[in-house]
């Protein structure tokens, strides 16, 4: 198992290099000179050169990339151009908020999605199935920001149950988690339902039925266990998607986090911050995939035996 994890980790290294190169390059395609953000018009050439040197902007691109990558690996993400602080500090400040929101949303959509998926699978093609699948479809088709605004209108403005924005206390987490989570629920419910139905048609289930085990035990302990494998995989693959969903939601709820930091930095052409946020999101996506692989291996006996 350990060797498997290690191999998977090694396989991530070229992917990481490729991602970091893309992240580095894309941002240099953006029009506009970051030096202009730092000095006023008419500043002397000397001041300009000094700032270019400080941010490494005067060197050729490949060198800039290597310097940047070397620094990144050492945990030095550069200095924010607009914020004039260590980017690592900005990211460190934003990350917990995003992890909190992303984690809670993931948990919420997993639990709700799996529960709904099970119910839908058990009542396949009857009205609860239709209702649940219809409901989650509608939930997944609403733009995240719009759902967020509607939730604000109802639960924060009309009912006054939760704060409108910000990140002060757990109550301010409820509406953002609902917004991000509801969007993800649809996918989880859909996958759970199909996986349950498919797993339920396997031979071993017939065998268990023949043995006379109660239906609920078969479904919850045996079928569900098999059905969860694709669900976990999908969840892990879509961690980036959950984080992406948080981008808009963080903006709507004026919540600090990687998403709102990224949006602001993009608008301000603050390269180091944009790069750091994208890199963090990319790493999260990669780690999610890795986690999915490992969980899948742990849960799937076939993969497990193949490893031994």
């Amino acid at each position: 198992m350990l060797a498997f994890t290690f191999r998977r980790l090694l396989a991530l290294i070229p992917v990481f290099l490729a991602v970091s190169l893309i992240i580095f390059l894309i941002l240099h395609l953006i029009p506009g000179d970051p030096v202009d953000n730092l000095i006023k018009i008419g500043a002397s050439a000397g001041q300009r050169a000094e700032i270019e040197a400080r941010y490494g902007l005067d060197r050729p691109l490949p060198v800039q990339y290597l310097v940047w990558l070397g620094n990144v690996l050492q945990g030095d993400l550069g200095t924010a151009i607009v914020g004039r602080r260590a980017v690592s500090a900005i990211v460190a400040q934003a990350l917990p908020y995003s992890l909190m929101l992303g984690g809670c949303a993931l948990l919420f959509s997993s639990i709700l999605g799996i529960a709904l998926g099970i119910v839908a699978a058990l009542k396949r093609d009857r009205w609860p199935d239709q209702a649940i699948m219809g409901g989650v479809l509608i939930g997944s088709t609403m733009p995240g920001f719009w759902l967020g605004l509607m939730l604000i209108l109802v639960f924060a403005v009309w009912l006054g149950w939760f704060p409108v924005s910000g990140a002060r206390g757990w109550t301010s987490l409820v509406l953002p988690v609902l917004t991000v989570g509801l969007g993800g629920t649809a996918l989880v419910a859909r996958v759970t339902r199909i996986a349950m139905i498919e797993a339920g048609q396997r031979d071993f289930v017939l065998l268990l039925h023949a043995k006379g085990l109660p239906v609920w035990r078969i479904q919850l302990f045996h079928v569900l266990r098999h059905a969860l494998i694709p669900v976990v995989t999908i969840l892990a693959l879509r961690i980036g998607w959950i984080l992406g969903g948080s981008v808009t939601v963080e903006v709507v709820f004026a919540r600090p986090g990687l998403g709102s930091t990224l949006i602001k930095a993009l608008a301000q052409h603050d390269y180091p911050v944009v790069q750091a946020c994208l890199l963090m999101l990319a790493v999260a996506v990669m780690l999610g995939t890795l986690l999915g692989d490992i969980l899948q291996a742990v849960m799937d006996p076939r993969v497990r035996t193949a490893l031994q």
Binding site: G244, V247, T289
Partner: peptide, 11 residues
């Protein structure tokens, strides 16, 4: 593909 569409779009 593993990157959220909204991020690709924003860039």
């Amino acid at each position: 593909w593993s990157f959220p569409e909204i991020l690709v779009a924003l860039i």
